[in-house]
Design a protein around this nucleic acid. Sequence first.
RNA 1: GCUACAACA
Length: 253
Amino acid sequence: VQTYASLLRVLIRNKSFAEAVKIRTLMVKSCQIEEDARFVLIVLREMNCGDIRFSIDLRCYNMLLMSLARFMMIDDMKSVYREMLKDNVSPNIYTFNTMINAFCKLGNVREAEVYLSMILQAGLKPDEHTFTSFILGHCRRKDVDSATKVFITMPQRGCQRNVVSYNNLMHGLCEAGRVDEAERLILQMKDDNCSPNVRSYTILIDALCGLGRRLEALSLFKEMKKEGCEPNVHTYTVLIDGTCKDGMLDEAK
RNA sequence: GCUACAACA
């Protein structure tokens, strides 16, 4: 990250702006830890107003917000959002969705709703990412019923549900102990132009194991492979974890 | 085209 920053300064001094944009993108995206994100934030801010002016465009603001979101730096996100308005850069649906998703991750649906109303004020249309984040947010607050409501209204509002919408709701249902409803959803997905992915199966397998329904978990595991869905580390972890807990070591292999 | 989801610890 530091290297990108130095390189960036050189490029700007040489007025190689096309190259600079590329490096800036790499810099913002390469943040591995919170400290990197903080550093990038400082660098971009000083470039945005410094004498060697290299202003932040919409795309860069969005990527910056995403990097901050990765480390749950919600306060910094709020300030960056305010700064972009001051800078006369109009947020687009990506910007709003990034903000909404961050709040929803924290279960702060109230604040997410503020940004939803801003989408409408801006004359934009909330999309499947927007609603899918709200499903997540409600589930994080253990309010599966509100999540279900959002899920139901999506098609009514012209949004196709996608795998993640399903996964989020299934996860919420599982955490509420409503695994049977989640199992119904994974079947329903197929009639809704969605195919379950590794995560869909892993969520269900995990829940079944947690309830001690290991045989069902194992048959789901077989089914996913039959469907051509490759299990990954997470799948094996929940499966091994769940089956070993009760001494079924042989199935675990 | 720059955005979202799962396990253990």
